[in-house]
Simulated assay, not measured.
Amino acid sequence: MKRLIDILASGLGLLILFPLLLGVALLVLVYHGRPVFFGQVRPGLEGKPFKMLKFRTMRDAVDSNGNPLPDSERITKFGAFLRATSLDELPELWNVLKGEMSLVGPRPLLMEYLDLYTPDQARRHEVRPGVTGWAQVNGR
Results as ranks from 00 to 15, higher is better:
residue 49 P to V: 00
residue 57 T to H: 06
residue 116 L to F: 09
residue 78 F to M: 05
residue 110 L to M: 15
residue 119 P to N: 09
residue 60 D to P: 03
residue 114 L to H: 06
residue 75 I to P: 00
residue 81 F to R: 00
residue 50 F to R: 00
residue 82 L to P: 04
residue 90 L to G: 02
residue 31 Y to M: 12
residue 84 A to Q: 12
residue 116 L to A: 14
residue 62 V to S: 02
residue 127 V to W: 00
residue 127 V to T: 13
residue 28 V to P: 03
residue 111 M to G: 11
residue 139 G to D: 04
residue 125 H to Q: 06
residue 61 A to N: 12
residue 121 Q to T: 09
residue 64 S to V: 14
residue 136 Q to R: 09
residue 33 G to C: 06
residue 125 H to N: 06
residue 138 N to V: 10
residue 122 A to E: 05
residue 63 D to R: 02
residue 94 W to G: 06
residue 138 N to H: 15
residue 114 L to G: 02
residue 82 L to F: 10
residue 101 M to Q: 05
residue 99 G to V: 11
residue 111 M to I: 14
residue 115 D to N: 14
residue 110 L to A: 14
residue 118 T to M: 08
residue 120 D to F: 06
residue 125 H to R: 01
residue 125 H to S: 05
residue 48 K to M: 02
residue 111 M to A: 10
residue 94 W to C: 08
residue 133 G to F: 09
residue 78 F to H: 03
residue 95 N to K: 03
residue 126 E to N: 14
residue 96 V to F: 04
residue 51 K to F: 00
residue 102 S to I: 12
residue 98 K to D: 11
residue 66 G to T: 07
residue 87 L to P: 02
residue 119 P to F: 07
residue 132 T to P: 08
residue 55 F to A: 00
residue 87 L to S: 04
residue 58 M to H: 03
residue 138 N to K: 13
residue 90 L to T: 07
residue 44 G to V: 03
residue 107 R to A: 10
residue 124 R to L: 13
residue 95 N to G: 09
residue 37 F to W: 03
residue 80 A to Q: 12
residue 108 P to Y: 02
residue 41 V to S: 11
residue 80 A to G: 02
residue 57 T to P: 05
residue 136 Q to M: 10
residue 138 N to D: 06
residue 31 Y to T: 15
residue 94 W to N: 05
residue 79 G to V: 03
residue 62 V to K: 15
residue 86 S to K: 15
residue 136 Q to C: 09
residue 112 E to H: 15
residue 79 G to A: 05
residue 104 V to H: 03
residue 100 E to S: 10
residue 34 R to Q: 13
residue 51 K to D: 01
residue 45 L to R: 06
residue 75 I to N: 00
residue 50 F to C: 01
residue 69 L to S: 13
residue 64 S to N: 13
residue 35 P to W: 04
residue 103 L to C: 12
residue 48 K to R: 15
